[in-house]
Amino acid sequence: MAQTSTLDRGGATPSAPARRPTAPRRSRGLPAWAVPYALLLPGLLVIGGLLLYPLYQMVEMSFYKVGLRQIRPNPRPAEFLGAGNYTEVFRSELFWSSLRNTVVFAAVTVALTLLAGTLVGLLLHRLGRAMSTFVVVGIMAAWATPPTATAVIWKWLFDADAGVVNWALGLLPGPLSELIFGTSDWSGRPWLNSPATIYLVLVVAVVWASFPFIAVSVLAGLKSIPSELYEAARVDGSGPVTTFWKITFPLLRPVFSVLLVLSVIWDFKVFTQLYVLAGGTTNREAFNLSLWAYTEAFSAPPKMGFGAAIAVVLTLILLVITGVYVRQIVRTEDVR
């Protein structure tokens, strides 16, 4: 009664008579319908307790004023503000600059990541087996590098005095620098002071760390396309660009759309690299939404309700994007 139709049919076969007496013991266990739920239970408890319940608490908290008095021992009850935190968020100039930073950064980074990843994926497909493995391992090592280390390495490369970038720029002729920056030479250029150049370095660092995953996914997709299609295209005299847009892209469209949404989600909530590159929470003009929420909630004086309201706005934006992703996954894969 416990297992499958095979068991019912096979249970009477003489091949396993000796073990047969153990069968009734199983009936003392869970009924068959309850097994999957029992297996899921620990996972559901973890997800419920550590992700869903805090999510609910975050929304609730965003309607209250939660500060130092509320998080100390013997807390005072929090003051209910209604939508007060949200009005303050939308009125704040920081909201608009953070939103702009978040969106522009995500748009630029996603475009460059997908472009670089696709090109490298196409390259990997043309390489021989050994070389392809070698390059995959090499680029995935960049992907596996801890975000803190990534940020620190790029911070060093772009350092005003000790950085390789300024040293390399110093090899260029001086008048060119005057043309672009209006300074007489290249040395000592501080990349990590103003928000615009912080984000420039951030884009480079994040693209460097995230294009390998795109490349490997595109490679996996390319391997699934029958080579006859490409042969037919070649016979018909199609060039590489036409072949890509007429064959590769349409066939890999589901892969690309999932990668696009995943990249948008990842780049929307980038935190660690920005925190390190911007040097903590002091450079307010360089905030994105997650760094702003973090700063409001955790630097003195802590305004946790206000921080929660910012986090709710960020989460809502991400949920809309996630909706697109989930629809795509449901369409391309059997979650049923």
Partner: peptide, 28 residues
Amino acid sequence: FRFRTTFLILLLIVQMIPAEALLIPLFL
């Protein structure tokens, strides 16, 4: 089983919640 699809979709959605957002309630 029932709710299997629901559970899988739940898995997809919770992965998107930004860690910095849950940080405040988790801290408390």
